[in-house]
């Protein structure tokens, strides 16, 4: 599999659920969902059409990363202020 660029949070959650769930009598469902995962994991090449879902997933990832970074920065600032006291 090529470079993995489009693993989104819901997809990761789906993959995690595969690992820990029992699939007795749910093979078709498992296959369908794995096909979706494979489709999302296929790397895009320049010039490929980007779907709205892919664009949303990427912007969601960026938003979550930025929010996390802002929170970490805030916590670090708080820690530094507490240290000064």
């Amino acid at each position: 599999m090529g470079s993995v660029r489009l693993i989104t949070t819901p997809v990761l959650a789906t993959m995690e659920s595969f690992r820990f769930r029992k699939f007795a009598g749910k093979r078709a469902c498992y296959r369908d969902r794995m096909a979706t995962v494979r489709k999302v994991l296929t790397p895009l090449r320049e010039g490929d059409n980007v779907t709205l879902a892919q664009a949303r997933a990427v912007f969601r990832e960026i938003r979550i990363e930025r929010e996390r970074a802002a929170e970490e920065k805030k916590a670090a600032r708080k820690k530094a202020a507490a240290k000064r006291k």
Partner: peptide, 20 residues
């Protein structure tokens, strides 16, 4: 992340990115 060249976006690319 989407393997798009920001200098060579088509009209539909622009719309997809904005709407996304």
């Amino acid at each position: 992340k989407l393997q798009l060249n920001p200098r060579r976006l088509t009209f539909s690319d622009e719309v997809t990115l904005v709407v996304g």
